[in-house]
């Protein structure tokens, strides 16, 4: 009895000794558990599941799921021409959208920077398309492409008389138009904020000294807003690689597969045709890794430039 009491006492001593640490631990848990719980349920576990299933033949038709090793990955790389084509198309799309969107956004931001009274008005107008959901934008533009532009072409603008969504060669660019229309305003806001950090005397010098203002822009302004450029390129890159809603709403990947981007290819592999969930998961893992590598390289390279300046 006595010995028991004694051990209990020593225990409580060590407990007191660790109490501060324990309390810290407890509060750490209290603050982090809720976030972690939701994160684990809806992000982590599904992700682990997706990795696991990418090695199986899980599909909608058969209820038994078998482990198939690397064969899904091998198939994606060697025997799936559509996946490869959709990947190449997505890369092309990403390249165009990232460049055009950022150049245009920066240009508009610069123009707006020079306005005083109308600055806010323009900011508001250019950002407006961002309020319209992607899928709704796609529907709006289907109307513009199928009804408005053909009628507009009758006013001597024969260039506008295209099979905007029906011609496989044109449809790709129609998607890009919508993406740029909707995305540019967002980047513009970030660039405007960054430009406000550029000292006024530098900007004034650029206005007055017209001849060298472009030089000025390249050598003074650009380095000073490099941080914002890194962010905007990161955001557009990420968004463009995962593009789905706009394509889904405008062309559904068609005609044929002419505008099938990689996210749509994965979606269709999973939810149409043979409903091969396992295989679609494998392809989505490949997409994940590619996005990971590209963004890491991009941020690394551009961060390096920031330090230089």
């Amino acid at each position: 009895m006595d010995t028991e009491l004694a051990t209990a006492k020593t225990k409580s001593n060590t407990f007191r000794f660790n109490k501060a640490k324990k309390k810290k631990c407890l509060s750490f848990l209290m603050f982090l558990t809720p976030a972690f719980l939701f994160y684990a349920l809806f992000m982590l576990i599904p992700l682990i599941g997706a990795v696991y299933y990418s090695f199986t033949n899980w599909n909608a038709a058969s209820q038994a799921t078998r482990f198939v090793g690397l064969s899904n990955y091998i198939e994606a790389f060697t025997n799936d021409p559509y996946f490869k084509e959709s990947m190449l198309l997505t890369i092309k799309y990403t390249a165009i959208v990232v460049i055009v969107q950022n150049v245009l956004a920066l240009l508009i931001a610069l123009l707006i920077e020079y306005r005083n009274r109308t600055r806010n008005l323009f900011r508001t107008v250019f950002f407006m398309p961002n309020m319209v959901s992607l899928i709704i934008s796609a529907f709006m533009w289907s109307f513009i492409f199928t009804i408005v532009l053909p009628q507009l072409s009758e006013y001597g603008l024969s260039l506008l008389d295209q099979g905007w969504l029906g011609n496989p060669d044109v449809a790709f660019y129609s998607i890009i138009i919508v993406a740029i229309w909707r995305g540019t305003g967002y980047m513009m806001i970030i660039y405007i904020a960054a430009l406000q950090g550029v000292p006024v005397h530098l900007k004034e010098a650029a206005i007055i000294d017209g001849a060298s203002s472009f030089q000025n822009f390249i050598h003074v302004t650009i380095p000073m807003i490099m941080h914002a450029i890194t962010i905007c390129v990161f955001l557009t890159l990420n968004e463009a690689f995962k593009v789905f809603d706009v394509v889904y709403g405008l062309t559904g990947g068609g005609p044929g597969r002419s505008t099938q981007v990689v996210a749509l290819n994965i979606f269709e592999e999973a939810f149409s045709g043979n409903f091969r969930y396992g295989y679609a998961n494998a392809k989505s893992m490949i997409l994940f890794v590619i996005i990971l590598i590209i963004t890491i390289v991009q941020v690394y390279v551009m961060k390096g430039k920031e330090v230089e300046s």
């Binding site: 599904p46 997706a50 996210a263 969930y277 990971l292």
Partner: peptide, 15 residues
Amino acid sequence: LIPFHSIMITLTRMA
């Protein structure tokens, strides 16, 4: 950085 498409199938199942 995880694309939504990577988890959509298993997320549906989890839900």
